[in-house]
């Protein structure tokens, strides 16, 4: 099953390189087409895979550490508060390298505020968390709007960036994101068993020898770093991290040793597909921002979860 899925993923990677404004036949490609394939489509497809994996991985960790099946970078407010930091960094004309760092800073502030607000007597209330996340989104969006209004000089670059998607991809961006993904993935898989214990209540996990607060803090920082780096390069792409961990759990069980891998893989698969759709759905070469597609899919999935898990939310 694992091999099958990896095979399917690689096939999708290859196939989606051929899709776009013009379909390319790889066996009869002209030199220009070959150039498009290698220097435009391939990095873009790889980039969407890496970003998808980052979002899927962060979602898997958020859902477990926050004990909330509705958690992901978007619903916790982490993505939009990261976006806020990135926008401010752009507005103040900071060097490009500092944009992800500013995003991580505000992303962590946003996430921890939401976490603190939703925790009473050592228990995280999932409903309060979603509400706090929504409000965090609103606050971050309003400050971003203010920045757009106030920093007229930077307006075009902010707007361009906010639209999200994979319009401009180069190998250095791709390498940076892949490196962050790889390091985070290794850090998480090294602690997969520890993370599993967080599925228990806090006291049980603690008496099993897990330093719950420390592990949760580490997980928050790494997961938010994934989100911040992803957001700083592609804007907010919501809900990938919400959907894929559930699908991975349904197919391969909840054990984090499996879930970390499959959430990353399925996240990559989902975003590659969504990007392929966004590149080809409008005839004549125009593109749809990929966030629209993931938000549509994710929104419907969110409603489905809300319906099936409502019992636990209101009584838990």
């Amino acid at each position: 099953m694992k091999k099958l899925l990896v095979g399917l993923f690689l096939l999708t990677l290859g196939a989606s390189c051929l899709i776009g404004a013009t379909a390319i036949n790889p066996f009869a490609a002209s030199p220009i087409e070959r150039d498009i394939l290698l220097s435009l489509r391939l990095p873009r497809v790889l980039f969407s895979a890496v970003i998808g994996a980052m979002l899927g991985l962060s979602g898997s960790v958020y859902q477990l550490t926050l004990k909330n099946p509705l958690a992901d970078s978007f619903t916790t407010g982490a993505a939009s508060s990261s976006a806020l930091g990135a926008v401010l960094a752009i507005a103040f004309g900071l060097p490009v390298a500092l944009v992800p760092i500013a995003a991580l800073g505000t992303g962590l502030i946003g996430l921890i505020t939401v976490y603190r607000l939703s925790k009473t007597n050592n228990v995280i209330n999932p409903v309060t968390m979603i509400l706090a996340g929504v409000v965090m989104n609103i606050i971050a969006s309003s400050v971003i709007s203010f920045a757009k209004y106030f920093f007229e000089d930077a307006l075009s670059s902010i707007v361009f960036w906010l639209m999200g998607g994979f319009f401009v991809v180069d190998w250095s961006k791709l390498l940076l994101c892949a490196a962050v993904l790889l390091i985070s993935y290794l850090l998480f898989t090294g602690r997969a068993l520890h993370l599993n214990m967080l599925a228990l209540d806090e006291h049980s996990a603690q008496t099993l020898g897990v330093n719950v607060n420390r592990l949760r803090s580490i997980a928050f920082v790494i997961a938010t770093a994934l989100v911040a780096v992803a957001v700083s390069h592609t804007g907010v792409i919501g809900f990938v991290g919400l959907i894929v961990p559930h699908v991975a759990r349904g197919l391969f069980g909840s054990d984090m040793k499996q879930n970390l891998f499959f959430s990353s893989l399925l996240g990559a698969l989902l975003l590659v597909l969504a990007d392929a759709v966004s590149r080809s759905i409008i005839p004549g070469g125009a593109e749809l921002p990929v966030g629209i597609i993931t938000a549509l899919l994710g929104g419907v999935f969110f409603l489905y979860l809300l319906r099936t898990r409502r019992e636990r939310f209101w009584h838990g």
């Binding site: 859902q63 477990l64 228990l200 209540d201 049980s204 008496t207 759990r249 069980g253 909840s254």
Partner: peptide
């Protein structure tokens, strides 16, 4: 030492 808490929960489907 080990502890059995008064109430227990396991989030997500673990067997």
């Amino acid at each position: 030492f080990a502890l059995l808490t008064q109430t227990s929960e396991v989030i997500f489907p673990f067997s």
